[in-house]
Design a protein around this nucleic acid. Sequence first.
DNA 1: ACGATATGAATGAATG
DNA 2: CATTCATTCATATCGT
Lengths: 207, 207
Amino acid sequence: MEPQNLQNPSGVNDQEAAKNGSFLCRQSSTRWTPTTDQIRILKDLYYNNGLRSPSAEQIQRISARLRQYGKIEGKNVFYWFQNHKARERQKKRFTCDNIPAMQMQYRNGFCKNDEIYNKFHNVNSGGFPSSSVPSAPGLINVGSLGSFGNGSFAVEKSFRDCSINPNQNTCGSMGQNFSWIEVDHCAAAYPFLDKKSCYINADLQTL
Amino acid sequence: MEPQNLQNPSGVNDQEAAKNGSFLCRQSSTRWTPTTDQIRILKDLYYNNGLRSPSAEQIQRISARLRQYGKIEGKNVFYWFQNHKARERQKKRFTCDNIPAMQMQYRNGFCKNDEIYNKFHNVNSGGFPSSSVPSAPGLINVGSLGSFGNGSFAVEKSFRDCSINPNQNTCGSMGQNFSWIEVDHCAAAYPFLDKKSCYINADLQTL
DNA sequence: ACGATATGAATGAATG
DNA sequence: CATTCATTCATATCGT
């Protein structure tokens, strides 16, 4: 559950209470505090409609629509989608890819931290914070993902992260890095930190 | 092989006691409670190796490594570094806030009540983030507080410029207008969102 | 048992 | 798009 919910179980007008209640003259949290309804809708757009990077126009519409549930601006919607997507990917990066040795196991399938997977299983196996995925009903929404309007949506990215890009992850990123040559300052005590050593101790579990 | 075995070697508090007492095998308390060994290593990485913001890859390795001392996930490592750094910075802020001389060093972060955060306020109605103006050249990286390997606290970032560049709308994906052929709303689940997607059936009850 | 504090977790808002 | 920072929420831990 999101903090917001716990914060205000009644789930109505979260921010108003928070702000007005205490200090009036405090500029305090300029920060947008989404209401539960807003969150619900945003997640629905994200998960059930595959919306990832809404266009400016879409953002306008969304924020306009969400405004009936509480104060909100376009930038809030914009950031929400950006953050949500970024964190979903980050979650994967911490678990699935990046380590060549690990990537192998996911070559032919999607990793179980995939959004789609999570959506229906609501699991978070050793990964990053699973933003509480809205309990999705049993139905698969894949159909709708593909048929979404302008087709510019980034639904296709769902599985991308689990695929491997060897040259990118292995040493591409460190091409001009000195790690290969010099001894990294962290490497001595913590060889597992060093990229190079990953080829040696490839197995994370048995390190 | 069994990573978990050493969970609580020294019988130190940790989470066992808490759990066992009430429910048997309660799936631990949701919240990661680092073992002393894990803490020790994390701190060593932090203080003795100057690691502050481990990359995704490093996080994977670290967590894999620490797993032999107890249950741990990538996100735990991630958050640990985030929090540790943030709180160190925060503490420093409080400590030095009064000392004028010191303030020179940490220019950003003090007096954050300023309006530098309100750069969006005079943007157009929709309120999209206009990409900020790049930084004023900043400043010095005053003597690092520590002699840590990687150069320490890169002293915050450069000034966040408060100036705004209204006509600029280069926020990443928003840079270009996706002026799709304007069809028009056909009231789908989110008519306000899309102009033409009619074939989406959303399971959102409330809209 | 309670209140304070330390710290894990989450997320809005940026930045480059 | 990856990363970082600030702030806030939630809970574990500890002293009284």
